[in-house]
Amino acid sequence: MAYPIHRLRRLRKNENIRRLVRENHISVDDLIYPLFIEEGKNIKKEIPSMPGIYRWSLDRIDEELEEVSNLNIPAVLLFGIPEHKDQVGSQTWNEEGIIQRAIRHIKENYPQLYIITDVCFCEYTEHGHCGVLHNNDVANDITLENTKKQVISHAQAGADMVAPSGMMDGVVKAIREALDGAGFTDIPIMAYSAKYASSYYGPFRDAADSAPAFGDRRTYQMDPANRREALREVSFDIEEGADIVMVKPALAYLDIISDVKREFKLPVAAYNVSGEYSMIKAAGKLGWIDENKVMMETVLSMKRAGADIVITYHAKEIARLLK
């Protein structure tokens, strides 16, 4: 028997009871904040398609890190924009590269921050693809060899976690073997396990200067139409040694987050990507939505779908509201 014996509105009567029975919550502890660090001096460059998000040079990054630290955001995800690019992205394993220097700076000055490094090549290659090219496509196994050099370089600089985003087959296994072989057995891997070839990445490519010079990334990133394939990708990454698995993007892929959370027992990260961020910012600027409320509801939807961790450009705004 339902109504009138059961009246669901009883538990919605006022804010106190709603708080008591609320099933999901957003906490600052859930958040990872991405940072774009550019080689050069005196750079604080707002990304036009991502209002409020900047590229920083290392000599000015403290302006951002102080705020992140004061807001008690636990972790940052680092993306580098080098001064010089080449065909293979060799700056990714240069011990004096922009990311390596950034890691050392953060470790020395903000030891309370947990440092995660994006492991990829698209920002570092002249062609903008995620590895070494062969016949105008990324050569999977050659790229894996360079990935090993990149992660060891990051670990030696002091990274706490590495996050491979290139969607190469076997990348988690290659990284785990490389890190373990170099003595970095305690560094975890957050795998971009279900990363789709999405149109939501547009603003990021402005932010990281990583748009491909030709073609697209559909031969190595997932087809947005596929759902079962995501579970295969995640299962392979877990077998290869992933410690955290990620779904990217998040908002249009809540079904994938839910599937992964239900099927596997590892922590699940959702990447609230640049296009999702920019849509909220644009609609908020035009007065079409209540920007803060839509922001919080959007991130809450990712938590409700099953995400344990949310990587989001909204992290500082969320942390301020939670304070």
Rank of each mutant, 00 (worst) to 15 (best):
M1C: 01
A2W: 01
Y3E: 04
H6F: 12
H6S: 08
R12L: 14
R18I: 10
S27H: 13
E38H: 03
E39S: 15
E39N: 14
G40F: 04
E46L: 05
P51N: 01
P51E: 05
I53Q: 12
R60L: 15
I61Q: 10
E67D: 13
V68P: 07
V68I: 15
S69N: 04
N70R: 14
N72R: 08
A75M: 10
A75I: 04
L77C: 06
F79C: 10
I81A: 01
I81V: 15
P82F: 03
D86I: 05
G89R: 05
G89T: 05
E95R: 12
E96D: 15
E96T: 13
E96V: 00
Q100V: 07
I103F: 11
I103S: 08
K107N: 15
K107R: 15
P111G: 06
L113H: 09
L113A: 09
I116R: 12
I116P: 07
T117H: 11
T117V: 12
V119H: 07
F121L: 12
E126Y: 00
H129V: 11
V138L: 10
T143M: 08
N146M: 08
K148I: 02
Q150L: 12
V151H: 04
S153V: 03
Q156L: 13
G158A: 00
M161R: 03
V162P: 01
V162L: 04
V162Q: 07
D169I: 14
K173N: 09
A174M: 00
I175F: 02
I175K: 08
L179Q: 00
G183R: 00
G183T: 00
T185K: 07
D186K: 12
P188E: 01
I189K: 08
M190G: 11
M190P: 07
S198E: 11
S198V: 06
R205G: 13
D206K: 04
A213H: 05
F214I: 00
G215K: 06
D216C: 08
T219E: 14
T219V: 03
P224I: 14
N226W: 10
E233L: 15
V234L: 12
S235E: 15
E240Q: 15
G241W: 02
G241L: 05
D243Q: 10
V245T: 13
V247P: 06
P249M: 11
A250T: 11
A250H: 08
A252L: 09
A252K: 01
Y253V: 05
Y253M: 02
L254A: 05
I257E: 13
I257C: 09
S258A: 12
K261P: 06
K265N: 13
P267S: 09
A269I: 02
Y271D: 06
G275F: 01
I280A: 02
I280T: 02
K281V: 09
A282Y: 14
K285C: 00
L286C: 03
I289R: 07
D290T: 11
V294R: 02
E297A: 14
E297M: 00
S301I: 01
K303P: 06
A305P: 01
A305E: 08
A307P: 10
T312N: 07
Y313T: 07
Y313Q: 04
H314C: 05
H314W: 14
